[in-house]
Each structure stands twice: as structure tokens, then as C-alpha cells.
Nucleic acid binder design. Sequence first.
RNA 1: GGAGGAUUAGCGAAGUGGCCAUAACGCGGUGGUCUUGAAAACCAUUUGGGAGCAAUCCCACGGGGGUUCGAAUCCCUCAUCCUCCGCCA
Length: 415
Amino acid sequence: MLDIKDLRNNFEGSQAAMARRGGDYDLTPFLDMDKKRRGLILQVEELKAKRNAASKAGAEARDELRELSQTIKGLDAELTVIEDELDGFLLQFPNLPSPNTPDGKDENDNVEIRKHLEPTKFDFEPVPHWDLGKELDILDNETAAKITGSRFMVLKSGGAKLERALMNFMLDLHTEEHGYEVVFPQVIAHERALIGTGQLPKFAEDMFKLENTDYYLISTSEVTVTNIHREEILDGAKLPISYTAYSQCFRKEAGSAGRDTRGLIRQHQFSKVELVKFTKPEESYGELEKLTSHAEQVLKLLKLPYRVVRLCAGDLGFASAMTYDIEVWMPSYQRYVEISSCSNFEDFQARRAAIRYKDGVGEKPQFVHTLNGSGLALGRTIAAIIENYQNADGTITVPEVLIPYMRGVEKIEPR
RNA sequence: GGAGGAUUAGCGAAGUGGCCAUAACGCGGUGGUCUUGAAAACCAUUUGGGAGCAAUCCCACGGGGGUUCGAAUCCCUCAUCCUCCGCCA
């Protein structure tokens, strides 16, 4: 959520920053709501002071107090209405892009920052992972469709083994080499948790809601992990706090009918290892660089070609101030495909979720900055391995670093 | 799902309609006195939000609502925890 004081003090600047996202975000109504709210507060507090003084003095003059109380009640109700209105209004607005986020309209204006390895070359015609996976009987979308519907996948045998291997490889790397604490979070979250991280109220149609409850299936473990510290005041000396988590993620993909319909690229259910950080404001951009490099390290060790792009303002996610996307080379698409998105939300989520820190007794609590990134999305990683590591004879070489996690299996072969 | 009990500061806990919320009392934390140093003892200090240039004022006793001139206290409702019963991996 945007900061009321910042908005008040730098309204023009906020409007201008908001405009960089494109879309029609008009903050103008804020000015009147804010003015009305402050006027009411002034009025109601003066009357309450009067009532408190009279009440302390004794129980005389009850008739006049009765009238005063009625007035206060009325004004309080009015104040509640305007505050709810203001909250509801501000919850609709995305974060302001950081000055580091470049101008631009859509993904075509994203800026390439760096590249690792060249796109994989083959001396035969490479096969898309959905065909090869079916051939090897490690990916089975038809059975998944029978059980549920489209955009689901049953991983079998070597495919299931890859999933388990990747999960442990990534979690071990992030905990042992990168200093993250591992957590295993719920995949069902209350709607207030989703408001905290910014999925709600705007994007309800992207998520699966559980009938007759206020619960949703999470679209990313960012939700449950970031909300670990909801409504807490953290000890400044303990920051930054870094968590990594493995979870299933659920997305309706309502707006992407017909896109990436085959294979593991776009599923209603997929798994992801997530990286989440809570930092002091002055450290957040340094920590974003680290977090991004931690996600990249997974691809480096898997020896998969990738590039890093900085998202332009028009392509930025709702809650983010700045984002790096990591894109892996996908031979079937003949282009780079997003496999991780690493963002600094600054204090946008922290304000919604009331996550603060304090340096010592008597210091004023401040909002932390929250960051997260995929480290990595497992489905797309499996797809990238199948495609980039495929051999002319229809087998898949297991990346060296995964062999111990595969209990010595070096090749995925027809069964 | 049923019955009963609970929720007050970092923790324990007192308070049953105004004299009780920067909230008694105890523990813990922090600073100090004393001491060669430490312990003990003693003294002080120790929640957050909002409005205002400021002085200062307002709000918060698990959340929300109600009764009342006035609510931690009475009523309704929701959440969470504990005990027992039922069910269950």
C-alpha cells in the first residue's frame, strides 16, 4: 500500500511515478478523502477530550453529556466510513516503480543485464519436452486431464525423481551455501494474508478460492512465507532475515487461455522453491542483487543457458518497485522463458501486512523492505533440463550436480 | 461436532461499571549506585497507532458489534488457546 504521508507531501511526484506503469491510475480522489478524514479526526478528538474531562470530574450534568456522546458517536461512524473508503481506494493501487526501473510499455522494453552460456546447439533436431517426456513416459498430461482437467501434469518415474532431486538440490544450496532458513509453509492462506502481499483485493480471479471459507490456494509461497512476520515488530539486529521454501502453487491462469498449452510451462498447479527476505530499507537493493545471484546460481550449477533482464515500468508486477527476471533458454520456444522473478517490494507489502522493525528500546518502529524471488520454478526447470540435456537417441543426460540427488542415475532412458 | 474454561505490557498476573492503563504486584530487559570484577541489594527505566508547526490531545485490555452519561468489567458475535467427549491420518 502507498504511504498516506508520502502521497500528501509529494502528490505530483507520486502521480508521475504511477503514470510510468501505464494503465489509468488516477490518485486525485485521494486528496479530498485525506482532507475530509483529517478534518473529522480533529473535530471528533476535541469532543472526546471534552467528554473525558467531564467524565473524570464526576457524574453530574448527565443530560448534556448524553447529547455530546451522541454527537461523538455520529462523527465516529462518519470517520469509519471515510477511512474504509480511503483504505479500499489505496488497496487498488500498485506500488510506485523505483527510479531504477526503466521506462517502457511491455516485455519488449525490458533491459537485458547479462547472459550466461550460449543457447544450446544440437547436431540433431531437438524435441520439445512435452513430446520427449511422453516418449519416455515421465510426463503424463492425459492421465492428469482424466483426474482433473487441462493444465495439469502427472510426473512419473524419472520425472518424479527429477522433481525430488531438484527440490532437495535447491533447498540445500540456499540453506547451506546462501544462508537461508528453510520453512515448509501451508498452501492455503486466509484472504488477509493475500491482502498483505498484494494478491488481493485486485487479483481474486487469478486464484482458486475454497468454497464457503475465506481461504485461498496460494499462487506462490511468497504469500505464506512473507506473512510469517505479519503484524510483528522485528529486532533490527536480526535483519536481514532470509527464508527459502518449497511449495505447490496454484493459479487459475484465467487470462492466458490458449497460451503455452503444452508441457510444463503454464500449469494450474506447479511447484516452486522460493526465496524471501526481510531487510532494512537501506539494505534492500543490495539484498536484491544477492537474492538474484542466488537464483542464478541454481542455473549456473545446472549449466543451463540463461539471461537476466530488468523489467520496465509497464511490465512490473503489482507490488514490485523493481524486478529482475531470470529467463532460461528453451529450445522448443527458440527463446528465453521466465524461470524466476526477483523483486524488491520496498515497504509496499510491509505496510499492508504491518511488518516492522526496531533498532532498540525507544526507537520508532519502521517498515521493513520485503523481497522475494523464485529459486527456481521446478516445472520450468524440469522442462529446461529435458530440452537442453536431450540426446539424439531420445535419452536425457542428468546434469552432473543432480546425479547424487538422483541416487547415481546419470541418464533418463525409455523404460 | 458437543461440553466447560481462558485471552490484560517481553513473561506471569491483579482489576467484576467512574477512584484502573505510560495498567498494582512478581519475573525478565536496559541504565545507574555499590564492588578490584561479578553476584546480591538499592534507585531509575521498559507498548504501539493516529492528529497537530508545536504545546498537547485522541485511540487501543484477543477482533468486531451492542447496552450506558461512562465499559477491561454487562450483553451479542467471531477468532485463538487449554481440558474432557466424539471423530480421524
